[in-house]
């Protein structure tokens, strides 16, 4: 069975490998020290099991999960993390609290191995995704044919609804992501991002001009020169937020 380790601390990786050395059925096919290269490797090499830390450089463990095409068995390894604790409560997946014993580790791996045969490469575990999708966003991670892109909140001009997808317009260009407007709206900082229209969420810091358009509607000019529609209720929200 193929296994990948995503863990940024060398001693922690050493310990995992030491525990795994006793299991002949497991082959470690890769070790990665950040979430970015971990996500790429998992999608490329399709391991059966992943040992995943949550606090990682570049992309954290939850962001990594959101980028997976297919889901291997995920065993979280974490020291202390409020979201992990939430995951534990929901019993979403197996998790190990550092430091953990060899017995506890073996038990988790055993459980994962048993599940591999049953639901191999399924969609990412629904409840794990649910937790990831509740977390407030401090940056947006998107994936396209060129790779993975990390967009800072302040770089976003506005977001547009496109059926089950959203289009993110930012300083680096535009990116499509499979996510609902409702979900992303809930996770954005409401002081900065306002749902100005059924189809648009605007970064209020990037609005240049607001002008009446048709009856009960407005047009906002964004600092990148583009314009978006603002509905009557969106206008009301903007007035509250920007205090004019």
């Amino acid at each position: 069975m193929k296994l990948i380790i995503v863990e940024d601390e060398q001693p922690a990786r050493d310990l995992l490998k030491h525990y795994l050395a006793f299991d002949e059925t497991i082959e470690i096919i890769g070790e990665y020290a950040d979430g970015f290269s971990g996500a790429l490797a998992i999608n490329r090499d399709k391991p059966d099991i992943v040992l995943l830390d949550i606090q990682l450089p570049k992309l954290n463990g939850f962001e990594l999960l959101e980028l997976l095409d297919l889901s291997p068995q995920i065993i979280f390894t974490t020291a202390y993390d409020e979201y992990a604790i939430k995951a534990f409560e929901l019993n979403a997946t197996d998790y190990l609290l550092k430091p953990f014993s060899k017995e506890r580790f073996t038990q988790a791996v055993q459980r994962a191995k048993e599940k591999v045969g049953n639901d191999k490469h399924q969609e990412v575990n629904v409840s794990v995704k649910a937790i990831a999708s509740e977390m407030p966003l401090n940056r947006v991670v998107v994936k396209d044919s060129k790779g993975i892109h990390i967009i800072a909140m302040n770089d976003i001009f506005y977001i547009e609804a496109q059926d089950d997808y959203i289009m993110i317009y930012c300083t680096q260009g535009r990116y499509m992501k499979k996510q609902t407007m409702k979900n992303i709206e809930q996770r954005l900082n409401p002081m900065q991002f306002v749902r100005v229209h059924r189809s648009y969420i605007a970064n209020v810091l990037e609005i240049d001009k607001l002008e009446p358009y048709e009856k009960d509607s407005y047009i906002a000019t964004i600092k990148n020169g583009e314009t978006i529609k603002v509905s009557a209720s969106g206008y009301k929200l903007l007035r509250e937020q920007l205090d004019f």
């Binding site: 001693p11 922690a12 050493d14 310990l15 030491h18 606090q55 993390d81 609290l97 550092k98 430091p99």
Partner: peptide
């Protein structure tokens, strides 16, 4: 800081072997 404490304990756990 619990995050620091438990990660340090985990490092120690590893070092006892290596």
């Amino acid at each position: 800081n619990p995050h620091f404490l438990f990660n340090s304990l985990n490092s120690i756990s590893s070092l006892t072997i290596t």
